[in-house]
């Protein structure tokens, strides 16, 4: 292999172009690469964490341990561990029955917005604390259409050594009794709390898959298109940045089923925050809202730090 004549700095650049499984293979292909990975351990650790979406910290476990845990963990035991805690789309009539916490309740209920489109709902990895759905949503009202369940975020910070890897997303729109079933939406994620949502704004009013693909191309995202009987989707292969676009979805409201649709996210990627952009609804009446029953990120939880909490 003549490549071994390249400089160490060249190999470090080559590593940046590769993904997790490529790195795992390369690391044990031969003595040269094995030694290279050992010699550049810190660099490789940072690069793998970057690919996994995990913020670098000295207390994070070595990358090969995280990869082993990922490989050995079951994908059949996925959990619903995120809680919606913020919306800028309001709540229909300010009623608890229509509030964002319904989005992850698979026993029924529907989130009904007040506004009509491009509504951002933020979720947080919150395995220990769940909101009491008997409360009055106005308790969490910040301004006319903005609600924030602040204590969820405060409690979520106690779980730093665990991190969820989102594998599937369940999306359900109401089958009947609601005038504005959600038709198009997008899902995103991030590891850290994000203040700048300009990337998500790029996808505002993105009502066709061609729009989604074009926007993805501008952002240099590679995309996989899925066309099913009851929905079409663009699954984005995640690139690294503060916010990861996961998928754009358009539901065929004529053919929707009560079981909802399952979107598989593909690559391993860790996230503590999950975002849903409710782009538009099928409107029966003018100036109406958006109704959506569930958007549930299902994840498996991996220990990434040294400390059990």
């Amino acid at each position: 292999m003549n490549f071994i004549n390249l400089k160490n700095s060249n190999f470090l650049e080559i590593i940046k172009y590769l993904e997790l499984k490529d790195l795992a293979s390369l690391s044990i292909t031969c003595k040269f690469f094995n030694n290279f990975f050992i010699k550049n351990e810190d660099f490789i650790q940072k690069q793998v964490l970057y690919l996994l979406g995990i913020e670098y910290s000295p207390s994070v476990n070595p990358w090969k341990i995280i990869l082993l845990r990922l490989r050995n963990s079951s994908v059949t035991g996925l959990q619903n561990l995120f809680q919606p805690y913020f919306t800028d789309g309001g709540t229909y009539c300010d009623k608890a029955y229509y509030f964002i916490w319904r989005l992850v309740q698979d026993r029924g209920g529907t989130y009904c917005t007040h506004l009509q489109g491009n509504i951002l709902v933020k979720y947080i990895f919150s395995p220990k604390v769940k909101p009491s759905m008997d409360e009055d949503p106005t308790k969490y009202k910040i301004s006319e259409d903005v609600f924030n369940i602040h204590y969820l975020e405060e409690n979520a910070n106690e779980n730093q050594s665990y991190c969820p890897e989102i594998r599937k997303i369940l999306i359900k729109v109401p089958m009947g009794g609601f005038s504005c079933p959600c038709e198009t939406l997008m899902c995103f994620s991030s590891y850290k709390k994000i203040e700048n949502f300009s990337l998500i704004q790029n996808f505002h009013s993105c009502k066709t898959k061609e729009d989604a693909i074009r926007n993805g191309e501008i952002l240099k995202l590679s995309a996989k298109i899925i066309e099913e009987n009851d929905y079409e989707a663009v699954i984005f292969k995640k690139i690294i940045g503060e916010i990861q676009p996961i998928c754009w979805v358009k539901i065929n409201l004529e053919k929707r089923s009560s079981n909802g649709i399952w979107i598989e996210t593909g690559d391993s990627f860790f996230a503590r925050y999950f975002y849903v952009l409710l782009i538009s609804a099928r409107k029966i009446y003018p100036n109406s809202n958006i109704d959506i029953s569930n958007v549930i990120p299902w994840s498996r939880v991996i220990i990434i730090g040294n400390v059990w909490i």
Binding site: F3, E13, I14, Y17, L18, T29
Partner: peptide, 20 residues
Amino acid sequence: LAKIACMFKYKDIETLRKEY
């Protein structure tokens, strides 16, 4: 360097060893 990375892409160790 991206071209070199392409040569390593999606290959398990046995394939890499055989190729090189």
